[in-house]
Computed example of a mutant assay.
Amino acid sequence: MDIDGRPHRVYVEEAGPAGGGGIPLLLLHTAGSDGRQWRDLLNDPDITARFRCIAFDMPWHGKSSPPAGWQEERYQLTTAGYTGLVMTMARALGLDRPIVMGCSIGGRIVLDLAAEHAAALRGVIGLQGSAFTGRYYDLSVLHHPHIHGGEVCGALVSGLIAPTAPEAGKWETLWHYMQGGPGVFRGDLHFYAEEGDLRPKLARIDTTRCPVTLLTGEYDYSCRPADTLATAAAIPGAKTVIMQDLGHFPMSEDFARLKPHLLPALEAMAGLTTPPRGAA
């Protein structure tokens, strides 16, 4: 497919109702990682029975290679480029007013999507989402010839995982980070920690046209609960939950704890009223 006028090969996974159909749910992974973070959600029958769940690897991430000529450039994510990518993917997949859910950088960009493309969306859900974060460490260490890029990326995000997370979920999340391409995490954080300040756009979000729900784990010094609450306070009608015993990667570190918060948000946004299978 063409993205910004250049040919790309983009890797997509999806799971949904038997026989097709379902409400489209487009899933955005975190900075420096890939769509494997959504593995537990893609295997959850309570969600896939009703939603067409679609996770794609952003270009330069996971199984989506960079475009030809990448060796001559530096990867750098911007607000306009990220929003454009999501809408390009939605059109290419023929999605009719999808719900878009993202985490971290994905939890940030859904705010721009709600401000700029409300009519094309059914709603947005931000996990660990806030309008701005800023830099809180020297980002140059993420791409330095004297430092193992993958291991330092894993080390830096390890403190963002809740101490209550199961060991398997914690280490799978970190493994994804340790496999990232050189400079990719740094390039994503250009958007997250430098360029992507969405605070001026919050007043433009109309939740009667595009509902907004923000779900944030309490163990997170990157997107702090206070940051999410301040963001939600600036968006009339936005819904917020601060989730106990969860950190910055709720869908991959501990999906079982995320699910009770996520299911009601999905049901409300989709206008579904029948209790999900297996719900308490």
Rank of each mutant, 00 (worst) to 15 (best):
H146T: 14
A55L: 08
G149N: 14
D138A: 13
C103H: 05
C153K: 03
W70L: 03
M89H: 14
W60N: 09
K63P: 00
Q71K: 04
L85F: 15
S64C: 01
V152D: 02
E116G: 03
V100G: 07
E73T: 04
A131F: 04
E73V: 01
H117D: 11
D112Y: 03
I109E: 09
V152N: 09
G102Q: 08
G150L: 07
L113D: 01
Y82C: 10
Y75F: 13
R74E: 12
G94M: 05
M87P: 11
G149M: 03
D96I: 05
A131K: 09
Q76T: 10
H61V: 05
Y136S: 07
L142Q: 02
E116M: 12
H117V: 04
R91K: 15
T79M: 07
D57A: 09
Y82F: 15
M101D: 00
H61L: 12
I125V: 15
A68T: 06
G150F: 05
G84M: 06
P145G: 06
R108A: 13
G150K: 09
L127E: 04
G149H: 13
M89L: 13
Y82H: 06
F132M: 14
G94S: 12
R74P: 02
F132G: 00
T133H: 05
H117Y: 04
G126V: 11
W60Q: 02
V100D: 11
A68N: 12
H144R: 11
E151N: 06
C153I: 00
A90C: 12
